[in-house]
């Protein structure tokens, strides 16, 4: 995605590093970050307790609860709910993102110097979809969620839409960048033998970009799983919800179980994406 040639010699490499370092120091000062504070009070003991629990994730409730379903069953149903939330959000975001990306990219446009009329239609369409794209992703999914919840209360639809809005924007941005940046040689060759611009896009550019599009979509699914977990904090009973409950009781070992589950989900998605890509490229 970010391939290409880079300036070999930055006007001054040292200046760049210096500027970054300066900004970082100012930030540390603004936030009052003192490294010593990390080791003060009972921070160290708590951290040690928390990290040691990593070696013994819970397989049962740390404190038995009367009449509750077995811990591992809860883990499984929580995992499935998290996955389902991510899938629901993505299945809305992918078509919306793809549509926005097409509207925002010029790769499939006919020559608008020849079709003057079409240009008058396409240009504002492109601009407005770029604005929608930028705006929808500039507000974080949790804030969209918060807005929806304050406006009409929490519901399945509200949660899905809250995630789908910024995700469509991000997917659209990356998709359209991929359309613009992929090599156009096949598309041009097809246009040279009389293909219309849309057909040349579909047959020459889209198949080329497809592996990249799929890889990125899988990365986004990974993010959606994380976001779904976080939405536990606004009340949907995903992994985040369970972590919050366990943390209120200081049940660190239960927390680690859920963290490991999240890790496993991410690993599986990453493995799948890699395996697909390998088979699509060779």
């Amino acid at each position: 995605m970010l391939a290409g040639t880079y300036r070999h010699y930055l006007g001054s490499r040292r200046a760049t590093l210096l500027a970054i370092t300066l900004c970082v120091l100012v930030s540390f000062w603004l936030l009052g970050l003192n490294p010593l504070r990390l080791f003060s009070g009972n921070n160290l003991t708590l951290t040690r307790d928390f990290l040691l629990s990593a070696f013994q994730p819970a397989l049962d409730y740390q404190k038995p609860i009367e009449g509750a379903e077995p811990f591992l069953l809860t883990v499984i149903s929580t995992t499935l709910l998290t996955l389902r939330f991510a899938l629901l959000a993505m299945s809305v975001a992918i078509p919306c993102g793809a549509l926005l990306a097409l509207l925002a990219s010029t790769a499939w446009w006919p020559d608008i110097r020849r079709h003057k009329m079409l240009g008058w239609v396409l240009r504002p369409l492109c601009l407005s979809s770029r604005i929608i794209m930028a705006f929808s992703r500039s507000i974080h999914e949790l804030i969209w969620g918060l807005l929806f919840i304050t406006a009409m209360g929490l519901s399945t639809d509200a949660a899905i839409i809250a995630v789908a809005i910024p995700y469509s924007g991000i997917l659209a941005k990356i998709y359209s960048e991929m359309f613009e940046e992929h090599s156009r040689e096949a598309q041009r060759a097809l246009q040279a033998i009389g293909a219309g611009s849309i057909v040349a896009f579909l047959a020459g550019l889209l198949p080329r970009a497809l592996p990249d599009l799929i890889t990125y979509t899988f990365y986004r699914l990974e993010c959606a799983v994380r976001t779904a977990a976080v939405f536990g904090f606004v009340g949907i009973e995903t992994i985040g919800y369970r972590i919050k409950l366990a943390s209120d009781e200081f049940h660190y070992r239960e927390i680690w179980t859920y963290l490991y589950v999240l890790f496993a989900m991410i690993m599986v998605i990453e493995w799948w994406s890699r395996a697909l890509r390998k088979r699509m490229e060779t």
Partner: peptide, 30 residues
């Protein structure tokens, strides 16, 4: 007119991740 003239560009203009027959079939694209 373009559909009556075949062009073989220097970079060939093939789509590498399509099958051979799919690349050939697009000769009739125009």
């Amino acid at each position: 007119i373009r559909s009556q003239i075949a062009t073989i560009p220097q970079d060939l203009g093939l789509v590498p991740n399509l099958r051979v027959w799919q690349n050939i079939v697009s000769g009739k694209i125009g």
